[in-house]
Amino acid sequence: MFFRFGGAIVLAVLISLTGVGLEKRNLELRRAVSQQEYQRELLVERQARVRAETQKLGAPPRLLEALEAGKLRMREVEQPIMPKSKSKTRKRGAA
C-alpha cells in the first residue's frame, strides 16, 4: 500500500517535472526565435541603410561630373560580367 502510494507520488512528481522541463524548453526556444527575429529585423534595417548609403555615394548625379572632368577614372573589373573578351574601357556617354 505504502509503495503503491509512494510510486504514484513519484510518478506524479516525475510527470510534473517533465512538464516543467518541457515548458522551460518551449520558452527557451520561443525566446531564441524571438531573438533571431529581432536580429533579422536589425540586419534587414542595416542592409537597407547600407544600400541607401552606397546608392547615394554612387549616384550618377554625384559621379558623372567628376568622371567627365577626368577627376575619377573607370577601370575594368578583373572578371568581366559580360562574356565578351575584347571589352573597351571608356567613359560612359562621352561624346
Binding site: E76, P83, K84, K91, R92
Partner: peptide, 14 residues
C-alpha cells in the same frame, strides 16, 4: 554595339 563593347556597368570607378 554589343553589351560588352558599349560603355557599361562592367567598369568600376577608382
Amino acid at each position: 554595339l554589343q553589351s560588352a563593347e558599349k560603355v557599361s556597368d562592367d567598369t568600376i570607378i577608382e
